[in-house]
Every structure is written in C-alpha cells, then in structure tokens.
C-alpha cells in the first residue's frame, strides 16, 4: 500500500517536473530568439554603417550609396502620421473617458477601436489607396502619412482612455467643487495627472508605425532619388528594405541590413523609453 502510493506520487512529481522543465525551456527559447534576431541585425548591419549611409541617396544596382532619402521619407511620414493621428486620438479618448464612459456609443467605439488596433495594416493601406491614391491619381507621401495616421489613431485612443480612467474621480469632484468648469477639470487636472501615460501611448504608437511597411507599399510607394515633395512618391526605410533585401545585388542587400538595424534600434529605444516613462509614473503613485 505504502509503495503503491509512493509510486503514484513519484509519477505525479515526475510529470510535473517534466512539464516545468518544458516551461523553463519555452522561456529560454523566447529569450534566445530575441537575442538571435538582435545579434544577426548587429552582425550584418554594423558593417555597412558609415557616413555615406546618412549623406547619400539610395544607389542604382551595383553602385555604392546611402539611405538619406529613405531616412528623410520615413521621418517625414512618421511625423505627419503622428501629427494627424495624435490630436484626433486624444480627443476621441477624452470623450470616451470623460463624457461617454458608459454610454452605448462609447462601448461601440471602444469595440471598433480595438478591432482597428489589431486590423491587418495592409487592409489600411488598401483603404488609403482607394480613397487617396485613386482620387489624386498618383502615389504620394501625403497618402503614406495618412495611412500611418490611421495606425497611430487606435493606439492613442486606447492609451488616452485607459490613462484618463486611472485618474481618481475624487480629483475631478474636488476640482468641480472648487467651481472649475468641466473643460478646466479635464485640461488642468485630468490631463496633468495622466500626462506620462498619454506620452507613453504616443511613443508606442510612433514605435509601431516606424517599421510599418505594408500600408506604405501602395501609398507612398518608393523613390530612388531624394525628394522633399510631399505630393510625390517618397522613399522610406521599410519599403527600401523590402526592395533591396529581395534583390540579387550584394550592395543593396547590405544597405537593407543597415536600414533594418537603424529601424530596429529606433523602435526598441522608443519602446524602452516609453516603458521607463510609464514605470516611473507607477512608482510615484
């Protein structure tokens, strides 16, 4: 009897430790993949990193060159997308947290926004293509920026609403009791209390669109030359990576790796800054 029970117990413990080893293994795999991707990027990207990357435009096949036009285009379109998406997102998030809150409209918008948040970005690209590129008759950086704005928007709406909901109602009531009108309560009290979180949201949104490729493929397209005309096709890092990595020319492939390194470092830095911001806020609370 005693032996039988011990055998059963030992088997249970063996099953458990086997699965827990599997769980350790899963965690190590996850970390290893991140390490491997970063290692590969540095290994292949750093070699191509030189001054020309930042001072010259993308070269024709077989020649040396840089990424200046692509970096410029990426920055311009990201700025445009953020400038369009952030105010709209903050306003919409404010309405949902301060005015709508439990209304049916807010529930519907929250649901729709969550869908937009995870919707395939290529579909957003198709939408902007139909609405802007077809109407205007040509590809343009404006269209690219608008596509990115549509990706910034749901992230900002979500974080703004979440952060404003974290502001205690007692604060709002105290401000109202002192005679502040609603707009002052929101702008002077709620926004100030939620500022760090809202900035985090915008940073995460910028990080998200920095590497977006699919929606730019058929809105901003690409441009081999330096162009500052927002009304014309414009080069951008992700599309350059797509085009150059799949080409047979070693110079182009090298530039693709360097561009990949630049994008990844930018995105990871934005992510880490955003995280640091939100955790310092949490500590203060």
């Amino acid at each position: 009897m005693q032996n039988l029970d011990m055998g059963r117990y030992n088997r249970r413990r063996r099953v458990s430790s086997l699965l827990m080893i599997g769980s350790w293994f899963a965690a190590i795999t996850g970390m290893a993949i991140l390490g491997l991707i970063l290692f590969t990027l540095f290994w292949r990207g750093v070699g191509g990193l030189n001054l020309a990357v930042f001072t010259e435009s993308t070269p024709p096949p077989g020649a040396a060159g840089g990424l200046l036009n692509a970096i410029y285009g990426s920055v311009m379109m990201t700025v445009l997308g953020t400038a369009l998406g952030t105010p709209l997102g903050i306003l919409a998030g404010t309405w949902m947290a301060e005015y709508g809150r439990n209304s049916r409209l807010a529930t519907v918008i929250r649901f729709i926004n969550d869908i937009l948040l995870s919707a395939p970005s290529i579909v957003i690209g198709l939408f902007v293509y139909e609405v802007m590129v077809v109407t205007m008759g040509h590809f343009s950086a404006w269209a690219g920026g608008c596509a990115l704005a549509l990706l910034v928007l749901p992230v900002v709406v979500r974080t703004t609403e979440d952060m404003l909901l974290l502001v205690p109602d007692g604060l709002r009531e105290a401000a109202s009791a002192l005679g502040s009108p609603r707009w002052m309560v929101i702008s002077r009290v709620c926004y100030r209390a939620a500022k760090a979180g809202m900035v985090t949201g915008v940073l995460l949104a910028v990080a998200r669109v920095t590497g977006e490729t699919a929606p730019l493929l058929f809105t901003a397209l690409n441009n081999q030359f330096m162009s500052t005309d927002m009304n014309a096709p414009m080069a951008n890092l992700p599309v350059v990576i797509f085009q150059f990595a799949l080409s047979p020319y070693p110079e182009w492939q090298q530039l693709a790796w360097t561009a990949a390194l630049l994008i990844t470092v930018t995105v990871l830095v934005l992510n880490i800054v955003a995280r640091a911001l939100s955790s310092s806020r949490l500590k203060k609370d």
Partner: peptide, 13 residues
C-alpha cells in the same frame, strides 16, 4: 520587445 520588432525585420531575418 519581441512584439515591438517590426514585421519586416522578421521577414529579412
């Protein structure tokens, strides 16, 4: 951070 890496980077990798 794995979620933050752009999908094109996964592609080239």
């Amino acid at each position: 951070l794995l979620a933050g890496i752009p999908s094109i980077i996964y592609g080239i990798w």
